[in-house]
Every structure is written in C-alpha cells, then in structure tokens.
Amino acid sequence: MNIFRFLGDISHLSAIIILLLKIWKSRSCAGISGKSQLLFAIVFTTRYLDLFTNFISFYNTSMKVVYVASSYATVWMIYSKFKATYDGNHDTFRVEFLIVPTAILSFLVNHDFTPLEILWTFSIYLESVAILPQLFMVSKTGEAETITSHYLFALGIYRTLYLFNWIWRYQFEEFFDLIAIVAGLVQTVLYCDFFYLYITKVLKGKKLSLPA
C-alpha cells in the first residue's frame, strides 16, 4: 500500500458516500445517470468475484464489501425507491455501445484466458468508460448540481491517484500491469474536460454548466 493508492481509495469511497447521501437526503436522483450507476454495479460485481475465495487483508475485503453494497443500494434508490425523480429522458446513453466492445476486448486482450481473469479484465475496461452516460447526461442537461460535481470530481481523482500509485509500484515494487494502466489513463482522460470546468467554475462558487 502507498499513499497514492490509499488516497485514491479514500477518494473513491467518498465519491460513493457523497452520491448515496445526496440521493438519500434529498430523496431525489435528479441529474444522476442510473445507467452509469448500473455499469459501476457491474464493474464491482465482475471484479470482486474472488471476494470470498481470495483474502488479501481486512481493509481489502471490507472496502470491496462496501463498494458492492453501496453500488447496489444506489441502483436500487435510482430505479426503485426514488424512481419518480429519475430523469430517464436525459439518461439516454446507449450502454450497449460500452458493454459489448469492452466484453469483446476482454476476451482478446487479457493476462490469462480464465473466467475470473477475463471478468476482471472486463471490469477494468468497463470502469474506464462507465462514467460516460453520466458525463453525457450532464452535457445534455447543460448543468449539474454542485454536489453532483463534487461526486464526479472525487470519482475522477481516484483513478488519477491510481496512476501515481502504478508509477510508485513500478519504481519501488517492480510491479506493472499494462491493462490497468492503459484503462486508467483512458478513464482519467475522459474526466479532463470536467476537471477543467470543475476547477474554473465550481471552485469559484459558480454552478457547473457545460456548453450544451
């Protein structure tokens, strides 16, 4: 464990908590893409199948349980509990264009042609594009609530910190995983536009508005 990975995990966890609290407290999922949350639930499910078979540490297991539980809770709130506030008309990204290519790619490019490894690879590829429906929705509605932009910032920063974690691990642990690194780079690049707006607008107290 290194500081970048730890801060990355904390950032990821806080993004998940921010979103849960936003929906639960405001009893509304307005402006939130249910499709992205569905994709995240798939990402965690396919990545943590070894949750019960491969014990790494208490920290690792507990974080995985929290991620999986909270992602399902978020999906449940959006599509069930508060579905009346779900803005389906603006959440129109075709997720099959994300799931099918990443699934095919995980069969073609992976470290090991075994079910667990292919599912892990699929989850890595899917996670790198899972935020697209949410970013698409923000661009369609033309703006996002401030709390939603904090959620997106924390979520984007987590994988950016993981990039530093991989530099660190390459340097000091001779550890190197090209699949995770390339997907992490793609994921971070997708946030660049949002990072720019967040830093130039939200941090100055303005509302986040994308050029529609």
Partner: peptide
C-alpha cells in the same frame, strides 16, 4: 504474466 500479486488492488 502478472501473478496474483495484482489482485491486492481494489
């Protein structure tokens, strides 16, 4: 080939 060491990341 990456060993199982990798699976220590979330």
């Amino acid at each position: 080939k990456r060993g199982n060491c990798h699976k220590d990341e979330l």
